[in-house]
Design a protein around this nucleic acid. Sequence first.
DNA 1: ATTTTGTGAGCGAGCGCTCGTTTTTATTGA
DNA 2: TCAATAAAAACGAGCGCTCGCTCACAAAAT
Lengths: 256, 256
Amino acid sequence: MVVKVASVQDAARFPGLPLHPRTLKAFQSEFDLSPEALCTRMLQRHRDTIRTQKPHVAVARLVRIVQTTLALSNRKGFHSMSLRHLATASGLSMGALYTYFDSKDTLLLMILGEVSGAVSATLGSPPAALSEDPGKRLRWLLETHVYLTETMQPWFQFAYMEAKAFPKEGREKARRSELATEALIADALADGVRRGRFSAANVELTASLIKPLLQDWYVKRGKYRRRGVLPEQYVEAVTTFVENAILPRGQHGTRP
Amino acid sequence: MVVKVASVQDAARFPGLPLHPRTLKAFQSEFDLSPEALCTRMLQRHRDTIRTQKPHVAVARLVRIVQTTLALSNRKGFHSMSLRHLATASGLSMGALYTYFDSKDTLLLMILGEVSGAVSATLGSPPAALSEDPGKRLRWLLETHVYLTETMQPWFQFAYMEAKAFPKEGREKARRSELATEALIADALADGVRRGRFSAANVELTASLIKPLLQDWYVKRGKYRRRGVLPEQYVEAVTTFVENAILPRGQHGTRP
DNA sequence: ATTTTGTGAGCGAGCGCTCGTTTTTATTGA
DNA sequence: TCAATAAAAACGAGCGCTCGCTCACAAAAT
């Protein structure tokens, strides 16, 4: 499959939105979140349920299965996607599908597992240098979150839309992952407020206002694509918006 | 059904969040958005497909059907809700259901129709006095949107989660309604920027950042209920957050 | 007596899932 | 080098079941 990637230089059409220093590409060379890499980890995690022996075959098939599942589910919903349709669209047979998972729910949980795995692998390990600067820490969080969800957009859209509808294990995994992200934001905010760099009447509530700004990027990805907004521009817009919103009085517009 | 409403005075637990002048109750006495009122309009709009003759019977049954549909769908998804389950839970028979709609999709569209109807009835007619003050106009928009979606929370959650999965007519109705709301915000922003009261590098993008703040209130209503955040407090938090974010440099903290 | 409203077993279609069979791939021995 | 063989993977019709939906009939209201 050929993927067309818009170059960063294309972005000049919004002169009010300068490009952010760290690009999407820089993030992507830091973490390998390609479908192949994700499905390799998926195979490792589910060696017991996946009956295919040879890893290279298993990974190749998993990539096809997962990509097709995400494409079909994100259009019409996971529950509406029949396994017959998945089989046809992914070029496998019904029986072949069932050598990779033992039930439709397992397929869902396998995908959710990689999503929450990717979250803790990226957001879970912020550079140590940031711990003393809440401003940089917050900016790193926002930026990394947008780039992560940009790279795995169909996965995150899937997790957001389908997590509630399915087995208890999946729902709780999604809920915990969501709250963890919000806690990271709240921590950075609280640190900034303590040091007098931020102003927020209620840190938890402010954190829960920032979260939907990050989610909008992958939930409404189509809208932003249609409008020609690049990931780097969205990072810049969200960062400016949030930093102005929590800037202590009298320090307005003094970003380095 | 008895609904327990937290009084506005209960709100003292967040001292940092003063109550907003216009309360939810004031909004609710301005617009009748009770299930009965909504289902009465639903009956009027669908006299041809609803075979029940007596209006008071039809409205009573519609209320039961719609309330149950929203409850079941918002927990597990509309597609996962079987009509048998809906019949049992609403106390009607399979056949009785089909005197109120001619297909499951029609039921979905009937609900979506009332949601977009309510949006244009409330947000579509702002007080004329506001047109000269972009600050008040924006605040009225945010406040009215939160109160509207609070009053019809299950309806809006339903529309948000299910609109994409179903027939073209429903998807487009939802998309148009969403864009219209965003345009209202963008208009107020543009007016404020022109008058030098707001600062925003890109008005459209800023409007699309405000939208998810409003949606979060009804999509994640459970989270805010668990944390004891009242509608009035959320209005206050969003308003402060947004106003600080778009305040021109040097005018920080000068809200009336 | 007549109209209106409600009932729920039954219909065909399509669902998730299985398993006896076929096809493909890898390994072997001369 | 290349059939013969063994191991791995793919196949897809068919199973039991539930789905959305209908309709001959019963009950209730007028």
